[in-house]
Write a protein that binds this DNA or RNA. Structure first.
Lengths: 165, 165
DNA sequence: TGTATTTCCGAATATTCTCCATTGTTGTAC
DNA sequence: GTACAACAATGGAGAATATTCGGAAATACA
């Protein structure tokens, strides 16, 4: 005879959580006080909410976006890659080896025309060539197609589709 | 007869700046104290450095990366786009209108096979279709090609190619 | 060398965060 | 309805952190 109480074991996110997430998506260096004020809750409540959000693993991480042109990085490119074999093993291997390269800012594993996209930042065209020929090309890499990036823009808006009434 | 002193009007970044930038790239929510300890400088020095880095506009921003699957977003896709006309005006217009859509996480303006890449996150396939047909397609959009994203990974490493001796 | 400028540090001050007891709210049982 | 249990929110005190500032140390330049 079980008598399980459910209560608000509520692991759901409510509007307040959503606001906090949105704020941090726009500016991950906001202080707890700033967030609390913006959302309209007590500081103690806000830090407690943050602790719970972190526990729920809502955030993959918080990252600074840097102006790479000020750091000696003059070329950004998107490299589109096809593999000869799409086994889980090869795909993981490829992704992991790409993430060891500091030139690789992020990776997308795709279903479609190509298998991977790499967003890379390099000093110059020689650096790009060396990177691609020496480190990106593998025996199971079928083809590379490189596009220069004129502009990358992060959207401050962010999609949240929660079911709060 | 001008006698302009230059001194260390040093707008250059040194190794300490580089360390701070790297740390914030990995974790943008580090406290000033944590950064100072990791770099090995006084807290007051560290906050002063941060002020200067911000003044130099090294950072585009600081953003939380959220686990969109926990927020009702079930599909992420990369949309590859070609425009009929690549005038500066059309390109700017297109980019700006894309950034008004909350589904668009970021935009890449490219030189190459396609003109734009959009990284989008949506609830489901109907939402994706509606987004593309109703909001992304414009009279100057020649073609769309959509690829499902299996995995997106941000590299904690980051390329900095400074010329400190 | 001496002087001007900048960077760094540490201590004092100001601010922010965390902990906790209390109060308020909501769901469940009777 | 009342009573109780589980949880969430609050404000305040003490702890932790950040900022300011005077002066020391380092660097640039003549």
């Amino acid at each position: 005879m079980e008598n399980i109480r459910k209560y608000n074991q509520n692991n759901e996110l409510d509007k307040t959580d959503e606001q906090i997430i949105r704020l941090l998506q726009k500016n991950a260096r906001l202080s707890n006080k700033q967030i609390a004020a913006a959302v309209g809750i007590a500081e103690s409540t806000c830090s407690e909410r943050m602790r719970k959000l972190n526990k729920k693993k809502i955030f993959f991480g918080f990252h600074a976006f840097v102006d790479s042109s000020k750091l000696g990085t003059n070329i950004e490119a998107m490299v589109s890659i096809k593999l000869t074999k799409n086994t889980k093993e090869k795909v993981e291997d490829f992704k992991n080896s790409m993430l060891l390269l500091p030139e690789v800012i992020n990776t997308y594993h795709l279903a479609g025309h190509s298998d991977f996209l790499l967003y890379v930042a390099v000093r110059d065209k020689n650096h790009l060539r060396d990177l691609l020929m020496d480190h990106v090309t593998k025996d199971y890499v079928k083809s590379l197609e490189t596009s220069l990036i004129y502009d990358f823009t992060q959207n401050p808006l962010f999609p949240i589709y929660l079911n709060h009434e």
